[in-house]
Computed example of a mutant assay.
Amino acid sequence: MREPVEVRRQRILAAVESRGSARVSDLAAELEVSVVTVRRDVEELAQEGRLRRGHGVVRSTLAARDIPAPRPPDGDTVAVVVPERHTYLYESLHGARSVLEASGKRIALHIAPQVAGAERPLAERALKDGAAGLLLAPRWRTLADEEADHAWLAALEVPAVLMERRPAAGSALHAMDSVCSDHVHGVHLAVEHLVCLGHRRIVFATRDDSPTARTLRSACARIAGAHPLVETWAWVLSAPEAGQEGPYAPEQTAGLHEVLRRTGATAAVLHGDVDALMLVQRLADHGVRVPEDCSVVAYDDVVAGLGTTPLTAVAPPKADVGRAAAELLLERLDSGAGGHAPVRRVELLPSLSVRGSTRPL
């Protein structure tokens, strides 16, 4: 489906603001549109005063000399920055909203386009508009994206809490408040459920393009590799576009049905819900029935229960993550500049919803 013009222009604007400047040809390649289309968008944005045009180059209007001094925080507004097209984090947003609105805070919602570094200009704009605190869920498709955000996040001068993002130990963000799901425990729930049903050979199909996806992949390898009853396990990408840069071995990019037959696996853990539903459809196309031939556990539980065969799923406490993050942020705001409470890293345990896609071997 063709991307709406305004969404594409917002992505261009976010990309240029995050870098200061960008070549038109590079933007066209990133957005997978023609150079002519980008030139037309840039011209419109320039006429609106939101960008500066050069010869083949676009520059941000937010150069340091052009940015007015931020307004003092008004105490009533909290900015929430989440990625576009991310239903999982939207549930966390609704959880945070219930807490913030009950406390009398106004929410300023900022949707970050799917462009590396898109969150920074949105956060800076929110602070310029007087936001007293921030709730952030950066997309961070790659580790490089995450590390590129360390410096400005660590330098924030207002209380900020990361949602569903766990700062790496020893990093610049190690001393930043965060609330997230314990995804290692989520994988443990999935594996134990399948093992208790008699399954001994399991395939894991996960994404590899977010901090959650990378945590899941690592947890799958560690838990399955150490489990005394798991005889064989394998890992594949859950969708062709779900990986970060770099080549993958043939078995990591092979079709799920091929890996199931090669390994003799009778069960699979699939991340996330939409990918899981599509993979189940593809299995049916290749004569693999769920759950008769393969038991399936999905990970996320946003729409897993809506399939023709409702999927057993690990359900991270998405809304509770948002509520806990908002409560932590409110505590920081209430304590004021003189507060010296220790940094908190909160982890909430997922649960397992058993449905029709799993059964005893």
Rank of each mutant, 00 (worst) to 15 (best):
L349H: 10
L109G: 11
L260N: 09
D76E: 15
V16Q: 01
H257M: 04
A160W: 05
V288H: 06
A131S: 13
R344Y: 01
C180M: 12
S103G: 14
P4L: 13
R262T: 15
L122K: 10
A325K: 06
R344T: 04
L109A: 10
G95H: 12
L31E: 07
E292M: 06
V321P: 00
D41N: 00
G264E: 02
V203T: 05
I107W: 07
V354Y: 07
L328R: 10
V38G: 03
Q244N: 12
L311K: 13
V99G: 01
V36D: 01
D177M: 07
A254P: 00
D129S: 14
Y299T: 07
V321D: 01
L328G: 01
H183G: 01
T212R: 03
M163H: 02
E84K: 05
G305A: 14
A213L: 02
V290T: 01
L162W: 04
L333D: 04
P113W: 03
H94G: 03
P360N: 14
R344A: 07
S171V: 07
A79T: 02
S21N: 15
L136K: 11
A96F: 01
P317V: 11
V78S: 05
G307L: 03
A239S: 11
A172W: 03
P72A: 12
G255E: 14
T309G: 07
R200M: 01
V203D: 03
V7L: 11
D209H: 06
R23L: 12
R289Y: 02
V38N: 02
R261Y: 04
R39Q: 10
V78D: 00
S21V: 08
A64V: 15
V78K: 00
E32W: 08
V81F: 09
D182K: 02
T206Y: 12
E327I: 06
S238E: 05
E84P: 00
G20V: 04
D182R: 05
A112V: 02
P167H: 02
R97I: 13
A169I: 12
L136T: 08
G20K: 03
H193G: 13
H94E: 13
R261M: 10
A132H: 01
G307C: 00
V24E: 10
K318V: 06
L229C: 07
